[in-house]
Each structure stands twice: as structure tokens, then as C-alpha cells.
Computed example of a mutant assay.
Amino acid sequence: MHQITVIGGGFAGLTAAITAAESGAKVRLYEAHHTPGGRARTSEGPYRTNEGPHALYLRGPHWTWLKQRGLLGAMASLPPREGARFRFRRGGALRRTPPLAMLRLARRRPEQAPVDADFTTWATAEVGAEGARAAAHFMGVALFHHDPGSLSAAFVQERLRRATALPPEAHYPRGGWGQLSDRMVARAWDLGVRIETTSRVDALPERDGPVIVATSLDAARRLLGDDSLRWESGRTTLIDLALRTRRGDPFVVSDLDAPGWLERFTAQHPSLAPARQQLVQGQLPVAPGRSKADGVAHAEALLDLGFPGWRERTLWRREALAQGRTGAVDLPGTTWRDRPAIDRGHGIYLAGDQVAAPGLLSEVSFNSGLEAASLALLAAGRTTEPLDLKRT
């Protein structure tokens, strides 16, 4: 029986490995780090952080898949009292509501937005400049991009509709995303997947069967020697803070003057930080030529507005710059179908968050993992029906 090799043990790689093993294939997975999980790994210690804010969207395709396998686990949603603690920076001041025009725009169906036009041009014609600008900046929460208004209108509008859905789609694994990836790892082990950690792969291994490369696009480009494996992504300063608890702190500070987002993650599940402490995570997109320090300065300005006395209350702090690690964004005239194809020929398949698969945030990794596994199983003779992503 042919072996299917998976390189990379993040969300995409684990999805592909489980899918292939469930069909009876022999699967080996290589992971460069000590533990699988990729960007879904949750840090050890008192502050349970990930690489940037993480949420699982209720209507996403992976929700049902995880639930059917008993992998979803306990999920936290936004407590009703926290829903009133959204704050929006508009004109340099914190406000309780966004512009009405932005809310009207969010109700437009995604198919009403053109692929070929940029979001700002289309949205301005729909609701005016103020609403268009606020909506574009609000979408920093899901795009991690310094100028969402420059992206394809259809791409941004689809995400705006879901990010503003009521009731909110976003849910959070209790204990952090690491709990979810741990359950996926256990499922893979139970199915007989051979997982080799601390095994960085710098060249394709000798193989007797298909290979699924479930790494970042940059790593895949180096591994496969294929310079065409490129796609637009975001560049974002990430900041994590542990603060002494203070009554009245907001749940979210969303910057509508420029893309930026702070979220008090312990509002959904206090287990992410010690008692009487709260964990605040933020992502502040930065343009090419700007530095991590620019993003930090942006974060501190939002903290000054929304979290009085935050400097004196800070017990722990961490900063990072994420470049090319925030998922694909589609420019005007392009859709997910134009991204690097999953099938690279010669039994090699790509999976990850910048390849040709639909979805919001981690859904791209999930859908590409399913598709890559389906094609690998087909090549190995384990199935006769490839997955049709156009139906997802």
C-alpha cells in the first residue's frame, strides 16, 4: 500500500493526515517543532496565548467536521454582558457604535460586490466614504492587512458579512486552540498516523506515494524549488498583555480610523490567565516599510483610550511581527481559485492558508487539507471521487 507523507503538523497538515488515515491509508507526518499544531499551538505557562487572536467561526465547514469526530470540545461564546463592551475608535475618540452606514453595508450580500473592483471604490458608491472607510478598517480583524480597502470588493464583503453576523459566529476553544490541536493529534495517533516531531524537512524525502506539503507558502516555495508559490498576505504586529483585572474594561477595541484590533480574550474563558488577571491580545497591521514599533505604538494608543492605567496594571507583555503568516488576501480581479493550486503534479499537493481553497481564516487551511488528502487518496488508489471544493 502506498504511504501518504504529510510535511507540516499545523491545522492543514493534521486535517489532511486524519482525512487520509480515515480512508485506510498509511500516513506519516513530519513536524519541525516539538509539538504539532502550527500557529494553533497554545503557549505553556500561566498565559495561554496563540500566535495572534484565534477564533472558530460557527458556520465554517470545519465546525461540523470537528463536531462529528468529537474533536470540537468545549467552546466558549461571547457572554451577553460583554456584547455591550465593544468600543470603536472613530475620529480619535472611543464610541459605542460604528457608523450606521457601515452596518447597512454589512447587510449587503457578498455576491453584490464585484471581484474586479477594490472594496473602497465599491463601498463608497454604496454607502458613502465614511461608511466605506469604517468598514474597510473594521475588517482588519479578519484580514490582518494594512489596507483592506485596496483588496477585492467581493473578498472583503464576504468576510464583512460573516464578521458582523448576529448572533456572532466567533467561538473560542476553552483552554486555548492548543486543546483543539491536541485532540486532533490524538485522533491521528488513534488512526495509526506516524507523527515524527522535531523533524524539519529541507528536501522532499524518498517516497512511495503522494506527498502533502502543509507548510507556509514561503517554506513550500523553498522546499519545492518553485518560485511561483507566492501570494499576497498581511504584515501585522502582534501584542499580548496580561493586566490586573479592572471592572469596566472593554471586550474589544476596534479601530475604525486605521485597521487595528484589541480583544480581551479572558472575557470568554478566564482559564487563559491566572485569577484576577486578564489577557489582552491585539493585532495591528503595518504597511510595507513600516516597523513592528509602529504597530506597537498603534496598540499603545488604543490601550490608552480603552484600558485606563494599563501600564501600571501590566504583569506580562510580548510582541512579535507576523509577516506572510496571516493568510491569503485577494487583490481586485482575483479570487481564491487564482492562488497557488493544491495539485502541483507528480503526486505533490499543497495545503495551507494561502492556497487555492475557499473560506475565512483557518477555513482555508481546513478546506485545502481536505482537498489535498482527497487528491492524494485518489493518486494512491484509495478513493475514486476527489473532493469538489467549488461546492464548499
Rank of each mutant, 00 (worst) to 15 (best):
315 L>A: 14
100 L>K: 15
18 I>M: 05
251 F>N: 04
94 L>H: 13
343 D>R: 05
30 Y>H: 15
106 A>V: 01
82 E>R: 14
256 L>P: 11
234 G>L: 13
162 R>G: 00
185 V>M: 04
266 T>G: 08
46 P>S: 13
83 G>R: 15
185 V>H: 06
29 L>S: 07
341 A>Q: 15
7 I>A: 02
189 W>I: 02
201 V>K: 02
95 R>T: 13
76 A>W: 03
330 D>P: 00
86 F>M: 10
130 E>W: 00
234 G>W: 05
358 P>R: 04
276 R>V: 00
71 L>C: 07
51 E>L: 15
113 A>R: 06
92 G>W: 07
195 I>D: 07
389 L>F: 01
369 G>R: 03
50 N>P: 00
8 G>A: 04
314 T>N: 11
45 G>Y: 09
344 R>F: 04
47 Y>V: 06
380 A>S: 15
186 A>T: 12
73 G>K: 09
34 H>Y: 06
49 T>N: 04
9 G>R: 15
223 L>H: 10
65 W>S: 06
321 L>D: 06
386 P>W: 03
243 L>I: 12
330 D>E: 09
323 Q>K: 14
132 A>D: 09
290 R>T: 12
223 L>G: 11
172 Y>N: 02
251 F>D: 00
74 A>F: 00
55 A>Q: 12
218 D>M: 05
365 S>G: 13
93 A>Y: 07
35 T>D: 03
231 W>L: 14
362 S>R: 09
244 R>M: 01
337 R>I: 00
265 F>P: 00
273 A>I: 03
155 F>V: 03
340 P>M: 11
19 T>Q: 09
260 G>I: 14
261 W>M: 08
351 A>R: 05
164 T>E: 11
54 H>T: 03
133 R>K: 06
75 M>Q: 15
259 P>E: 12
244 R>I: 00
77 S>N: 07
199 S>Q: 13
165 A>T: 11
307 F>V: 12
144 F>R: 11
154 A>P: 08
352 G>F: 13
347 G>P: 07
365 S>W: 12
319 E>H: 10
235 R>E: 09
190 D>S: 15
290 R>V: 01
178 G>F: 06
120 T>V: 09
8 G>M: 10
210 P>Y: 10
183 R>A: 10
16 A>F: 01
149 G>N: 12
72 L>A: 10
211 V>R: 04
337 R>N: 03
290 R>N: 03
159 R>E: 00
382 R>Q: 14
248 G>Y: 03
232 E>D: 12
